[in-house]
Amino acid sequence: MTLDLALFLVLACIAVASALGMLLSRNTVYAALYLVLNFITVAIFYLLLGAPFIAMAQITVYTGAIMVLFLFVIMLLGAENLPAPNALPWQKPLAIALAAALFAEAAYLLIVKARSLGNVLPPAEAINATENLRQLGVALFQNYLLPFEIVSILLLVAMIGAITLTKKEKGARNG
C-alpha cells in the first residue's frame, strides 16, 4: 500500500508538471510532447487502479494515434513557434475568476460533501484483470449493445462528415 502511495505521489507530480509544461511551453512541438507524457502518466494511473485494458487503450488511442496526428499537423503547417502572447484585455481577470470558481467548487465537493459521495469500491481487488476484460466485453456487446452501436454510427458519421468537408466538389474546380 505504501509502495502504491509513493508511486502515486511521484506520478502525480509528473502529471501536474507535464500539464503545466504543456500550457506554458512556447513551442507547440514541446507542448505536444508534454501532453504525450501526461497521457502516459494517466495510463499508468489506470494500471495502478487495476484497469489494464483502459490503460492500454489510453496509450493506443491518445498517445499513439491522436497525438501523432497532432504532431504531424504541427510539422506539416510549420507552426512550431507560437507568436508572442496577444491577450485580450478582459481575458486575464475572467480566467482568474473562472479558475477561482472551479477551485472553490472542487474544494467544496471534496471537503464538505466527501461523506455523501457514496462508497467507492476498492478497484484493485474488485475483480481480477481477466474477468475485468470479460465483463467489459459483456457490458459493451450485450448489456449496452444499442448505445454502443449508436456511438459507433455517430463516430462513422463524423468521419464521413470530415471527409466530405475537406474534399473539393468535382465541379468547383472549374467554376
Binding site: 489494464p52 485494458f53 492500454m56 487503450a57 496509450i59 493506443t60 498517445t63 499513439g64 494515434a65 501523432v68
Partner: peptide
C-alpha cells in the same frame, strides 16, 4: 493490446 500500444508509440 500492450503490443499494439507500444507499436503505436
Amino acid at each position: 493490446l500492450f503490443f499494439a500500444a507500444i507499436a503505436s508509440v
